[in-house]
Design a protein around this nucleic acid. Structure first.
Lengths: 201, 201, 201, 201
DNA sequence: AATGAATGAGCTTTCATTCAT
DNA sequence: CATGAATGAAAGCTCATTCAT
């Protein structure tokens, strides 16, 4: 019984994610979400207090979803830090590129953080997500420094923030431009950046 | 008379920009825009066919506005390419940072390009804007290579795309996090990147 | 088993009475009634066909409840008719005054008789209740006439109706006005009315 | 322009009064009210913020309406106080009896004062209306005492409250019972009450 | 040209009722 | 018998758009 309930909740969240991604928050209707989830309109309200709350839950589900996928790819890495960093970025870019239809959700969330009634909540979540992600990358860089692989005089937080940001932004440009390949561009860019980071031999 | 009409058009666009930035496209009402512009609700429809169209016009106005400001800062630059590139990025970051209240419009446009009924039009405009911007930066890099300031084996398009993207993304992170200073972070990052780009001496 | 069912029925009716009194018919939800009765929502429908029917049953329960309390206070009266009439009115006013929280139900019933889908049924019940009550008071007055305590030329039905009505109306005014004491006002009024009824000596 | 606006407001209030009276607050729909007023649904919201507010305005309109009619009948009275009081009561009863279809609104207001979200506002208005009305009747009685027409030992507030209340209550009984004539009953009752009030000769 | 009163399509949300368990 | 998850009809309300002035 409990399990079944959880399943239906998940079902609705996923349907909502798809509809929000396709139509945007405002043009998405509860009706359509319910239909896509294969439940009645009222059922959505059995599980979520309001459309706004549902959107919030989708946001959280989405964050968890991608945090997991990032963590997952981390565990299989080994070798020099520079190599691992490059591989991680490759994995992230590929992962996202393959789910462009859901990447549009990201933009929906950004927009919500800019102006919606839940803007403060969204901003806070984003802030924490980004802090965490930057922290992760900072860890890598620091490891590289400790292992004397990277230079000592790096502005670690700045480089971490830029890396994280670049990945976001390349996906964005990929969204706008069919001829733009985020994965390839990222690879080309990482080479140069790594060169700036690495200790000169 | 023609002049006056153009003034009122501009007036409405600017009012709309402010309201869209503050409330987001959907929560912004024609009523409020008209009020802010100091005209009647009906007047908005004298100049724009629909809310959607008005939004599109705001988008174009906004692109022009920032293209101009970028071009402007370019004209005053001189010296080595690396220095000019750094200065350009500084100028861009500072310029935007000082107008965060209108930066939220960017997110609104991103969101519109992701899901709205005008998504294709917006995507196309964004594609062209980014292509142009990347082209500009590519030009810089190529100049640096030609002047034997930069290495020859650079993946120019990739580095240009990343630079452009990083600036976007740092502003985004600045939006989420009050403690995050895009200008400072960019400065710290550029040093490292330039080192990866520069010819080794 | 039969007994148990009757108990649960009563339980639901009493819970419903409380919720209808507090929230009004429309704002009362079956959910809340069920919760207050300590049963499941579905169970309410085991005992009552619909919300409307439940409301009707509450109405009947309520009528019975107060008919009993009126009859009860009658049985203990003795002495001259005027005295008994005064005492009866006192008892009624006190009885109701002490249950103002349920008196609001009366207004709910009045309203239902004015406009609801069950208006005809409610009107009919009210009509009979009032007829009966007026008949009871008429009996008193006729007894007073027969015992040569009261004048012979009284418009018995009119006086009975007015007495009954006054009691209603004083409670109503008491509901609106915390400073208005129905019991005291009734006492002051009865003196005067009795003087108009009594044979002059 | 101002005048026209006021007309439409009035129009909607009167349409709302009719629909509220017929269907009750909750079953009345804005749609139906708009239709009855001959305007679009949205127009109702141009003049009233919400259904609740509209209901409140109907309440106020209704109070003004009957206050005027009571005041009006007062101005034409002359002769002994007892006679004037009787005539006033006759006029009130007749006036209301002829508008039974709107009298049902009264019950709707009572009900709203018992349980609705606006209960406190309604109670307060009712309290003041009744206080004023009782004050008016008290004035009559005091005049009768001053002119040595009435006894000196009367409980003036109690009698005034009861008179006011009786009129309410007789109309109520008239609503329930087609065979019950509030005008006639009131006449029969006033005779007796006046006898209790008048100085014995 | 400029206006804003009027409009109704279309949305979110509630809740009485049903029915499988 | 009892339950409460599921449902969808129905209603209040908003706001882009129109159009008479």
């Amino acid at each position: 019984m409990k399990q079944k309930k959880k399943d239906k909740r998940e079902l609705i969240i996923e349907a909502a994610a798809a509809v929000f991604a396709e139509k945007g928050y405002n043009s998405a209707t509860i009706s359509e979400i319910a239909q896509k989830a294969g439940v009645g309109k009222g059922t959505v309200y059995e599980y979520f207090k309001s459309k706004t709350e549902l959107f919030g839950e989708v946001f959280e589900w989405y964050n968890k979803f991608f945090a997991e996928s990032a963590t997952l790819s981390l565990s299989s890495l080994s070798g020099p830090v520079a190599k691992r960093l490059t591989e991680l970025s490759n994995s992230i870019m590929k992962n996202w590129s393959d789910h462009m239809e859901i990447y549009t959700l990201t933009m929906e969330f950004w927009s919500a953080s800019a102006s919606s009634e839940v803007k403060d909540r969204f901003k806070e979540i984003f802030r924490n997500v980004y802090r965490e992600f930057r922290g992760l990358i900072e860890g890598f860089i620091r490891e590289g420094i400790a292992k004397e692989e990277f230079r000592e005089d790096l502005d670690v937080p700045a480089i971490a923030a830029s890396l994280v940001g670049t990945w976001d932004a390349l996906l964005l440009q990929g969204w706008f431009d069919e001829d733009f390949d985020p994965v390839a561009v990222n690879a080309g860019y990482m080479t140069t950046l790594i060169r700036g980071i690495n200790k000169e031999e």
